[in-house]
Design a protein around this nucleic acid. Structure first.
Lengths: 346, 346
DNA sequence: GTCTGGCACTCACCAATATCGAGTGCTAAC
DNA sequence: GTTAGCACTCGATATTGGTGAGTGCCAGAC
């Protein structure tokens, strides 16, 4: 797409004010309106010339012959990449954030809920936070309870005070005593270690199996393997979806339905958010850029959040393409940092 | 409201066919259309007379002078109470239900999810299932883990393979060993008993406290009290909300927004569903009858479900007032019975 | 007394038409 | 390169008239 290198200062400034104006009122902006901009000392006619150029480059577009211009996806892209002047957070918002996330050491999931709710409340759009990847979190305690036949209910607690449970299928039926023994072993060997590390150790211990090893220990390691087997993050906390129902650009029922279906399927959204894990800071998908048709008229502003300097999840805001990027971007950025801090074990 | 006693056979039959017809096509039905009913050997003019009576009694209503008639809430009420001929379940639906719920002994929550999804898939409306009341379920295992200061993480497992966790604040700080001891005590005394029974026993044991009782035991009972304190059901599983976005009667965005907000608040919906716990069988709220303005244009068809002959929860279907009650009612009824059966511990 | 045909009337719905005004592209002059 | 002028386009809005489904009411038939 057009990079904007071949545009002069003036055209860029014009594009910038056009986009800002459109974001403000949601109406196609015409040459007459722009000519009133004090910095842009041009007559409507000249502005029309410039706009014709911008249109040729695919940055703006007229909904119909005699309407003003509206930014295209590439127009927005150029705008957020090079033209945007981000506004620092309003101090009231910063207060709200700091207060909202400072919940006196709750469970991790409570903090995530709060963060999601804050994102949606402040932006009046939808907020989303992926669950943190379990890799870096450390094991506190594990326990096995027998179910029928070969099925075992595993409960383990991590140091973020989160309780996880899972049903595993073992190769044979274990007695309660055997399960207790296995749990004891795993607690003594693995507790205090990160799940990633544990996975590592499990693999190593399973390779040792040729030499004579205590059978009970082998069983324990086997169960650990089933318990901690790699499983991709597939959940997130979403808030304020209903805020999206107020926007005129999403008032088409069919579109809205697809969007909400995407929210409840989760799969597609997670995939999208996963792409933001690698990004250094704020990442933005504008309209069709996301590749998911349900999001065609939406933008997604995301930022990864980290615990102990390791990226563990992503949070973001979902709203109509026409959103106040200059406010949302710094807000998402700061929220990600504060969430990371709030999750940091003391 | 008019009870229908003062209506003759013919008027009732006319009302019935009118409602059926309206449910079928969603168009106001006029006298000409009704006069074609083979059982109703009347001219349009006579039908108009009858309709005028029905309108006077508040059972039907014309959207405007020259449209047909549409049932009012009281009209629907009379229809479902006395006129409806319920259709037995299609065998394919019964199959789908039986298959869908027969998930080889999963966790209780998995079964609820399936039930909710089935309700929405089959009816193409929204399905809802409240979590079962914990009273009747029995305790399998309890465990305490220390958190910072006086906070303790309690984990307990019930015989429906559900893992619950909760943070309680104790009056003093306990060592891990003390907590272990308390858990041992509670496991030995309470496990295998229903939560209701446990609550009972806790109260009784706390009354004994004047005489000399083992302090550790007292601490354990105290913690049990905090853990099992009465807490009302406040959650449910909802599916297929997006199905509701297809209905023309819910196409007003403001209304739809309120409806979805009610879904995420949960409070109001739970309160409504709680009222159905007492009911013997299927219970129906039509339009404004529910008293919640968000549900003004919706109907709710519910049935309580039981485990071991004790009612533990409610499930139901939410859709537009104009729904095929004759199919939905038996379907909800059967689903409730099958869900109860599926939850029954073997 | 009940039913019915007839008739005037109402009113949503639709299509055609007119008007308005914001905004455009183009061109010629500055 | 910039600007004023002008013809033009086209969405938005209002006006109009016709159509048809449906009604209420009445007078006459059964």
């Amino acid at each position: 797409m057009a990079g904007g290198q071949d545009l002069n200062e003036r055209s860029l400034y014009l594009l910038k004010t056009l986009v800002e104006r459109y974001i403000q009122d949601g109406q196609p902006v015409g040459s007459r309106l722009l000519s009133k901009d004090p910095q842009l000392k041009l007559s409507p006619a000249s502005i029309r010339n410039v706009m014709a150029d911008l249109e040729e480059m695919g940055l703006i577009h007229s909904p119909h012959t005699s309407a003003g211009r509206v930014p295209t996806v590439s127009g927005y892209r150029l705008f957020v990449d090079s033209l945007l002047t981000v506004k620092p957070l309003a101090s009231s918002e910063l207060d709200q954030l700091q207060h909202g996330l400072k919940g006196e050491a709750d469970k991790a999931s409570d903090v995530l809920n709060k963060a999601s709710k804050l994102l949606s409340d402040v932006t009046r759009m939808a907020g989303v936070v992926t669950l943190p990847r379990r890799e870096s979190v450390t094991l506190r305690h594990i326990e096995f309870l027998p179910m029928s036949n070969t099925r075992v209910l595993v409960i383990f607690v991590t140091d973020d005070q989160e309780v996880h449970n899972k049903i595993i299928h073992t190769h044979k039926q274990f007695s309660p005593a055997e399960l207790q023994q296995a749990a004891n072993y795993l607690n003594s060997v693995y507790s205090g270690r990160s799940l990633a590390k544990i996975r590592d150790l499990v693999v190593r211990e399973m390779e040792l199996d040729q030499r004579q090893v205590n059978q009970g220990m082998m069983d324990a390691v086997n169960m650990a393997q089933l318990t901690f087997s790699e499983q991709p993050n597939d959940d997130y906390v979403l808030s304020g979806e209903t805020n999206l129902m107020g926007f005129s650009e999403l008032s088409d029922m069919e579109r809205l339905k697809q969007l909400f279906e995407a929210f409840s399927q989760k799969r597609g959204v997670i995939h999208l958010l996963d792409q933001c894990l690698q990004a250094e800071g704020v990442q933005i998908f504008i309209g069709e850029e996301s590749g998911y048709s349900a999001f065609d008229h939406c933008s997604l502003v995301t930022a990864p959040y980290s615990v102990n300097d390791e990226v563990v999840g992503v949070l973001g805001v979902i709203g109509p393409t026409r959103m106040a990027y200059e406010k949302v971007i710094p807000f998402v950025d700061v929220t990600a940092k504060l969430l990371g801090a709030a999750l940091n074990p003391k």
